[in-house]
Nucleic acid binder design. Structure first.
Lengths: 261, 261
DNA sequence: CCAACTTTGTGCATGCGTTCACAAGCGGTA
DNA sequence: TACCGCTTGTGAACGCATGCACAAAGTTGG
C-alpha cells in the first residue's frame, strides 16, 4: 500500500470500479505528460472560452481582458486566468489577451487543428437530431457514419449521410477513420454497441444512453444523461420547497416527509 | 415492506451531534441546513444509483451490498457508502441494503415524490427528440408544454402535446405549473427565452443552447453542451496522439502540427 | 449463547480545484 | 527616460471531494 507516497506517481486517478483489465502496469507519468496536466474541469471551461472568443472575434473585438472574458463565460476572473495559465502565457499585462491568438492556442490545446470524424449509432429521435445538428461539422467534427440495427433504415440517408448496418461498424469505422463514437441507442443495446466501437478502435465515446458503460482503461467515455440532469434539477426544486416550508413547520417537508431525522 | 415514507419512522438515528463544528467560528451550523448539505457531485451519483437500483428491483433483487452496487454504478464502494450516508443510515451491517427501501429514500431526497412538469422551448430537431423522449414522463417528468416562435408550428401536436407560441410562455407555464424549463432553441434566442421562463416563475432550467445564460441567483441552470463534450473528447484524442508521437518525434504531432512550441 | 464472519458507516488523511492577494510586467504619458 | 496605472500570472491558503482503514453492528453456524 503506497500510503505515504507524496509525489512522483499517480498523476491521473481514474475511477477504478469494475474495469475489465487487471492491474496492468500503467505508462509511467513522464515529463511531457505533466506539462499537459490540465485539470479536466479546466478543459471543459476552455471550450466555453473558445466559443465566447469566437463570438467576440466575429464582432471585430481584437483584445479582451480577463475580467471581460470571465464575465461573458460566467466564471471568476481569477479562475479564468489560472485556466489560461495552464496552456501558457499569452496575455499582455496592462492590456489583456489578443482574441485571435488566444483562439489559436485554445484550439491547438483542444486538438481542434485536426478533424475528428464522428459516428452516430442509433438513428432514433435523438440520432436524427444529432445527424442533422449543424454544430458538429461547423466545429470540426464531421459526422462520417451513421449506424442502426434496423434493416429498414440502412441505406437511407439522414442528414446527407447514409445509414449503415450496425454489423458493419468495425469496417466502416476503420475506413472512415472515426475517432469519436456517439451512442444514441436504447439502454439495452448500449453496452454491446460500445464493445463494438471499442473493438473497432474507437477510443472516445459520447454516451447518451442511460447506462454505465464498462470500458477498458484506455477508452474515454463522457456521458450525457438527461434523466440525471432532470433529477438534479428536481433535487433543487425540492430543496427550495423544503426551505420555504421548513420555516413554517420545522423539520417536516411540505408533503409530510421528515426532513431532519 | 417497511413504509417507504411513513410519518411514523421520523425518529431515526440522530447521531450524537458530534459533527465537525469546532473548526468553524462561523454561524452555528443550522440543523436543517445539514440535511441539505449533500455535495452536488453526490446528488448526481445518487441519480445513477437510483437507476441501477430500479433495474435491480425489476430483476427481483431485494438486497444488495455496497460492493455490488458500486460495481454496477461504476464507482468506488467507499464513495458509494459515503454518498448514501448523506441521506441516512438505511443499510444493514453484514447484509447490505434493501433495494426497495433505498429506492424510496433516494427518490425522496431527489424530490421525485412529486411531479415536475417540464416545458420544452424550441421545437427543432432536438426539441422533437425531447418531446418524444419516453425517458422523461416515465421518470416523473411529464412534458406539459411545448413552445416555438414559428407560427406554422403552433397548434400542431408533437408527441401528443400541442405546441404553443413562445409569447404565451408566461401564462401557459403558470397554468400548467411548469417547474423545469428546457431550452432547445438556437443560441441567439436562448437568453431571451431564458428571461421569459424566469419571469414566468420557472426556477430550474436545462439549457441545450451553446451559450452561457445569465440568470438571477435563485435560478438553477444546468447545461448540456454537445460542442463542449466533443471538444473535451477531442482534447483526449490529441493528448493520446501526442503521447504516441512524442516518443518518436519529440514536439511534433503525427500530422505535423507543432505541439509544444 | 457465543464465536466467527460479513458489511456498513465514518474519522482521517490526501489531493485536487478554487479563490485570494500581490509582485511582476507592460503601455501610456510627461 | 522615468513614473504611473492597469492587468496578467502565480504562490499560497482554503475548502471540498475522494479513498483508506477500521470499529461498530448485525448475521450465521455450532
Amino acid at each position: 500500500m503506497a500510503a505515504q507516497r507524496g509525489e512522483g506517481d499517480g498523476v491521473v486517478t481514474r475511477p477504478e470500479g469494475s474495469r475489465r483489465e487487471g492491474t496492468g502496469p500503467e505508462a509511467p507519468a513522464d515529463v511531457r505528460e505533466r506539462a499537459r496536466a490540465i485539470p479536466e474541469a479546466a478543459v471543459a471551461r476552455l471550450a466555453v472560452y473558445l466559443r465566447v472568443l469566437s463570438g467576440m472575434a466575429e464582432q471585430g473585438v481584437t483584445t479582451i481582458s480577463s475580467e471581460e472574458l470571465a464575465g461573458a463565460a460566467g466564471v471568476n476572473s481569477a479562475k479564468l486566468r489560472k485556466d489560461l495559465s495552464y496552456i501558457g502565457s499569452y496575455g499582455t499585462r496592462g492590456v489583456g489577451y489578443d482574441v485571435e491568438v488566444l483562439v489559436g492556442h485554445i484550439e491547438r490545446i483542444l486538438g481542434l487543428t485536426r478533424k475528428h470524424s464522428v459516428a452516430v449509432v442509433g438513428i432514433g429521435n435523438l440520432g436524427h437530431a444529432l445527424a442533422n445538428y449543424g454544430g458538429f461539422p461547423s466545429r470540426g467534427f464531421p459526422v462520417a457514419a451513421l449506424f442502426d440495427i434496423d434493416p429498414d433504415l440502412t441505406g437511407v440517408p439522414v442528414g446527407g449521410i447514409p445509414v449503415d448496418h450496425i454489423d458493419d461498424i468495425t469496417t466502416v469505422c476503420a475506413e472512415r477513420e472515426v475517432s469519436i463514437g456517439v451512442i444514441a441507442t436504447p439502454p439495452q443495446a448500449a453496452q454491446a454497441v460500445c464493445d463494438r466501437l471499442v473493438s473497432a478502435g474507437v477510443q472516445c465515446i459520447l454516451n447518451f444512453a442511460p447506462v454505465v458503460l464498462q470500458v477498458p482503461d484506455y477508452v474515454e467515455v463522457r456521458k450525457v444523461d438527461l434523466a440525471v440532469e432532470m433529477q438534479i434539477l428536481s433535487f433543487h426544486v425540492a430543496r427550495r420547497a423544503d426551505e420555504a416550508a421548513g420555516d413554517v413547520v420545522n423539520g417536516i417537508g411540505v408533503d409530510g416527509v421528515v426532513i431532519r431525522p
